[in-house]
């Protein structure tokens, strides 16, 4: 339980009380202590540039790419999918909802679906060849790899020959599901082993609880 909970006090503007944390735990694979530990992580991320209790794109970018500036197609997609309300910031609830999908015990269906939505850049319900090319070019630029256009086309041809089972030139959800089940390594980044023992990774919430109690 969390009767000694740090958050068991009047709600602040972006604060969460015990009931909120219990609800988030009930809605996810995390228990209340884990939600508290993730709140520590959230606070750290959400005050790294703008200290307003919300994760801005620059803050996510700083955490993932170690630089707040510059364009990154993939970071934009991740941010958009985390930002359920599409209001340009990630709230704690949204953070929990998204990380829940990355839990080692989350259903594979959820991971498959999230990855599909990530790669369906234009959100048409299909991963199209043009989108794949755009993403391949983006990763080559990001990793400073040089491949000839010919080789890029060859990689995409080969990928579509494998993934586009119905041969209509685009990857639909069914194609995608069958494809990633044949190539499970493609979902590797959809699981974060850290989430299994997040309270060990972020034990500072316990310390915070004690600080609050002694006041």
């Amino acid at each position: 339980g969390c009767f000694e909970c740090y958050y068991n006090r009047p709600k602040k503007k972006f604060g969460y009380d015990c009931a909120d944390l219990a609800r988030l735990a009930a809605e996810s694979r995390f228990n209340v202590n884990e939600v508290e530990a993730l709140y520590e992580l959230f606070k750290k991320l959400s005050c790294s540039i703008i200290d307003d209790g919300l994760i801005h794109k620059e803050e996510l970018q700083l955490a993932l790419l170690q630089t707040p500036s510059g364009e990154n197609l993939f970071l934009d997609r991740v941010f958009d999918l985390f930002d359920e309300k599409q209001n340009g910031v990630i709230e704690f609830e949204e953070f929990i909802h998204a990380l829940n999908i990355f839990h080692p015990y989350a259903p594979i269906e959820d991971k498959i679906d999230f990855a599909f939505r990530l790669y369906d850049l234009r959100q048409t319900g299909f991963i199209e060849r043009e989108e794949v090319k755009q993403m391949v070019i983006a990763i080559l630029i990001e990793s400073e790899m040089r491949l000839s256009d010919e080789l890029v086309e060859e990689i995409i041809d080969k990928t579509f020959a494998d993934a586009d089972a119905d041969g209509d030139g685009k990857i639909d959800k069914k194609d995608w599901k069958e494809f990633v089940i044949r190539h499970p390594s493609l979902l590797k980044n959809m699981t974060l082993p850290y989430l299994k023992d997040i309270t060990t990774a972020f034990p500072s919430f316990v310390f915070n609880t004690q600080v609050e109690d002694s006041e």
């Binding site: 990154n72 997609r77 990001e142 990689i155």
Partner: peptide
């Protein structure tokens, strides 16, 4: 010339998609 990688294997290498970095202290 080596066999080209799967496009999604390449794509999934992006740092922007590797959320494990959120947990780096």
């Amino acid at each position: 010339q080596p066999t080209p990688m799967n496009a999604f294997e390449l794509i999934s290498m992006s740092k922007g998609l590797n959320l494990g970095n959120l947990f780096d202290e």
